[in-house]
Design a protein around this nucleic acid. Sequence first.
DNA 1: TTATTAAATCGTATATTTGCGATATAAGAT
DNA 2: ATCTTATATCGCAAATATACGATTTAATAA
Lengths: 111, 111
Amino acid sequence: MAIHKKEEFTQKEQELAAFAKAMAHPARIAILKVLAQRNECICGEIVKILPLAQSTVSQHLKELKNAGLINGNVDGPRSCYCINWKSFEKFMGEFSFLFNKLKVQNEKSCC
Amino acid sequence: MAIHKKEEFTQKEQELAAFAKAMAHPARIAILKVLAQRNECICGEIVKILPLAQSTVSQHLKELKNAGLINGNVDGPRSCYCINWKSFEKFMGEFSFLFNKLKVQNEKSCC
DNA sequence: TTATTAAATCGTATATTTGCGATATAAGAT
DNA sequence: ATCTTATATCGCAAATATACGATTTAATAA
């Protein structure tokens, strides 16, 4: 693209899009699932489970962390990740709010 | 990437990722908002509202339609779009189910 | 029929994402 | 101090997404 126009949209629109983007890859959905299922925050476990190289998984984890969907902290020689439920709920709530609210006043779709 | 590995993930993971991807751009969030707010399914209206060229908007609409998030039908010389509430609810439900369910059994995050 | 209008599609430039191997970093083990 | 193990980061190649102008398509208006 010539110029990226993302900044011409509202803050909220950009935030929701960024949240969606963080989940817009099956590998990251799979990572979130694994993190959500375990009581312990695995790290190398994810690499074993996913069909991807270690460096690629690390990159996906970084994206999820940057988006605020997961937390991570170093634990000795390894890293420990887990879902950031607060931000997750915040975004899910915003999506539901945005669309559910509107749905009520516009129940009948015209096409 | 050398080879795209998306098909190595489960069907559900791919579906959720595709849904998220459809919303992973502020322009598409904005389009969904406009469609949700109006009782009538606009078309050229969206072009007027968004800071993007007509062809670009058309492209975004196509993506939303392909992802099943909106419906569209030709109405004379113009096109009419609206939110596909059913598929929207389906996906929102799946996300909530996946993560809310897991959250209950894993309330305490370790980091 | 020809012009107008609305929207889709094509072609193309540029930006971003995805993926991997290689390398770096950092902590614990020997 | 050196080796091992776990993870992060770098550099690069290939794929995909974003954006636009130009063109096409299709329906209504003149």
